[in-house]
Design a protein around this nucleic acid. Structure first.
Length: 109
DNA sequence: AACATGACCATTA
DNA sequence: GTAATGGCCATGT
């Protein structure tokens, strides 16, 4: 097929972004979860890398956290607390250690 | 084409 | 319970 909807031709980034955009408000998803939904099961690393290269504010990257329920330490921490604030605004509660209960806010497809 | 880097996850000791 | 190791792939130079 030559065709029309070539999703495979699209960069892996866009694919991950699409999944992240699918995250419902007030919920959080882990890199592994997104990777699986994006078709990259087991390649959570790429998900984190994709978000790091993210420059589009249209993607709720703040809803993406690691399996520990914590915010991953990004290289360019301009607003390390920003993610936490955004999530709190969405209705996500943080623990004392600054962690989120994936059991409660974990996005379930 | 190859090398080096990177917001990770799961398993085992 | 914590600590450490291996593995997978995409992007950029």
């Amino acid at each position: 097929m030559t065709l029309d909807g070539d999703r495979g031709s699209q960069p892996t980034y866009q694919r991950i972004f699409e999944v992240v955009k699918r995250i419902p408000r007030g919920k959080v998803a882990t890199y592994g979860q997104i990777a699986q939904l994006a078709g990259l099961a087991g390649h959570a690393r790429q998900v984190g890398y994709a978000l790091s290269a993210l420059e589009n504010d249209s993607v709720p990257w703040h809803r993406v956290i690691n399996v520990k329920g914590e915010i991953s330490p990004r290289t360019w921490s301009d607003h390390d607390d920003l993610q936490r604030e955004l999530l709190e605004k969405e209705g996500v509660a943080f623990n004392e250690g600054g962690k989120v209960s994936l059991v409660r806010f974990g996005w379930q497809s």
